[in-house]
């Protein structure tokens, strides 16, 4: 299998980037998309060129480190999938595949396809936790949590923090990411004590980081590898309004 990769190259944050084309032969349909890039990098080394920087770690769709725009879509042509789960069988022999980094002002480019997503950590820092010191917990079954509630919290908690929701949003909004964490914690009895403070401080930080507003286009939930529903954003907004007015 042969494809043409058109890849964004940029030396560092300060420099200007550009697309470069690479014709790559010797691929197979079984290969993952990242393995095809690995193969390209080995070819580059063999002609003494600098390798392309791109991110990955677990390569099984859970760590959230990988993520690039592929032919104009976050994580490639399929819904609800990470870049590392994409395989070359999704492409045809001879295809041109355009690969770009996440584009969002809150995610500055570090090099080639690698961006800085620490803005997401900063949002978590402002309340994406329950203030419980080690050693202070009551017996686990002392506070009951019904199955429906536990399942709902888990649906939101499943977020892998890849940033595809931000990258695909025309406003570069981090609302889905932020809402997922707020709803996970605020819906559980353990998270209730800090619920108002959490929603106000985390949404405030989201704005400070330079993410845009949500205009409910629904693009994010399509690309989210965990299929986190946009209804989470509506719920977050309701929680925020309630916290603002009722405390």
């Amino acid at each position: 299998m042969k494809v043409i990769f058109k890849i964004w190259r940029q030396e560092n944050a300060a420099s200007k980037g550009n697309f470069e084309s690479y014709e790559v032969d010797g691929l197979t349909k079984d290969m993952s998309f990242l393995e095809a890039l690995d193969h390209l990098n080995e070819l580059l080394v063999s002609i003494n060129k600098r390798v392309i920087a791109y991110e990955y770690d677990c390569r099984e769709g859970i760590c959230g480190q990988c993520g690039v725009f592929i032919n104009g879509r976050a994580h490639g042509p399929h819904d609800h999938m990470t870049t590392c789960q994409l395989h070359m069988r999704s492409f045809e022999d001879g295809d041109t595949i355009v690969v770009e980094p996440w584009r969002a002002s809150a995610f500055p480019i570090i090099k080639d396809l690698v961006v800085d997503r620490s803005a997401l950590d900063n949002i978590i820092e402002k309340g994406g936790y329950i203030s419980a010191k080690t050693g202070t917990a009551p017996e686990a079954n002392a506070i009951l949590v019904g199955k429906e509630l536990a399942d709902k919290a888990m649906d939101a908690a499943a977020c892998i923090g890849c940033g595809a929701c931000v990258a695909t949003c025309k406003n570069s909004s981090a609302s889905l990411f932020t809402a997922a964490k707020i709803n996970h914690l605020n819906s559980l009895p353990q998270g209730k004590q800090e619920a108002s403070k959490r929603v106000l401080e985390m949404t405030r930080q989201m704005e400070l980081e330079g993410f845009g507003s949500c205009t409910f286009t629904g693009a994010c939930e399509v690309e989210c590898p965990e299929g986190i529903s946009i209804l989470n954003i509506a719920e977050m907004n309701a929680r925020r309004t309630k916290a603002k007015w009722l405390g």
Binding site: I130, G135, P138, I143, G146, K147, H184, L188, Q190, G191
Partner: peptide
């Protein structure tokens, strides 16, 4: 106990 208190959504029975 510790992880439940930290908000880990472990699987639960209906009760």
């Amino acid at each position: 106990d510790h992880y439940v208190q930290q908000g880990v959504p472990f699987a639960r029975e209906y009760g």
